[in-house]
């Protein structure tokens, strides 16, 4: 049992990562990873929302009528997100301003609803909570990697501590402006997905379509 719980918690880190295997939650991953501190705060918020969301849905799963299950899940998730957003505005004002709308948009993050609908509706309280935390950590892992890479190459710093001195201040480091723009997160996430699938070939999806071989009509 102990072993099983551990598996529920750690499987979403690499083997079943919501971002790199299920390709969910990409929008926020692009938006909040320009620096490591926003990525860390967003990670914390998503872990909390996922854990509490899955736990509460799992607790009342036997009472939820099948017909309105999605709207009940969304209501619970939205409540949690609003509460977390209010707490951030009170106790982490500066960071919450930088995360701006993306805290509110966790409501529409497919990972949260996905775990509630596909896992918490069918599993017990402990397993669902662990599954929520695990998926949150899987999302966080990628967010932190992307955030660290983008901040390091985009600004030469980590957690706002300057490591490389930019040329404008007499150093020899030329900041990569691209790293601060959303497309760079696409490239980095793409690179991470490639890397993981190289190491775990079982994650590689079979092609849905194959190119049609045209008959060679020309000579």
């Amino acid at each position: 049992m102990q072993n099983n719980n551990w598996k529920i918690l750690t499987r979403p880190l690499i083997d079943d990562n919501p971002l790199t295997l299920q390709i969910l939650g990409i929008c926020s991953a692009l938006a909040v990873t320009t620096s490591l501190d926003t990525a860390l705060l967003m990670s914390l918020v998503v872990v909390c929302v996922l854990a509490l969301g899955s736990a509460s849905v799992s607790l009342i799963r036997k009472f939820i009528p099948h017909t309105i299950r999605i709207i009940v899940q969304i209501t619970i998730i939205a409540t949690l997100v609003i509460v977390v957003d209010q707490v951030l505005q009170a106790y982490a004002f500066e960071l919450s301003k930088r995360l701006s709308v993306f805290v509110g948009l966790i409501i529409t993050n497919c990972i949260v609803l996905g775990r509630a609908e596909s896992y918490a509706m069918h599993n017990g309280f402990v397993a669902s909570t662990l599954d929520g935390i695990g998926n949150g950590l899987g999302y966080s892992l990628i967010l932190v990697i992307v955030g660290a890479i983008r901040e390091f190459f985009g600004k030469g710093s980590l957690l706002n501590v300057q490591i490389l001195i930019p040329q404008s201040q007499g150093g020899s480091f030329e900041p990569l402006q691209l790293m601060l723009l959303p497309p760079s997160a696409f490239f980095i996430i793409g690179g991470i997905i490639w890397f993981i699938r190289r190491r775990r070939p079982q994650q590689v999806e079979s092609a849905e379509f194959s190119l049609r071989q045209l008959e060679d009509s020309a000579k």
Binding site: I60, P65, I68, V72, A78, T79
Partner: peptide, 12 residues
């Protein structure tokens, strides 16, 4: 369905 919806909405 109505009961559960009302209860969830009220608590949230």
């Amino acid at each position: 369905a109505l009961g559960v919806a009302l209860l969830v909405a009220f608590i949230c």
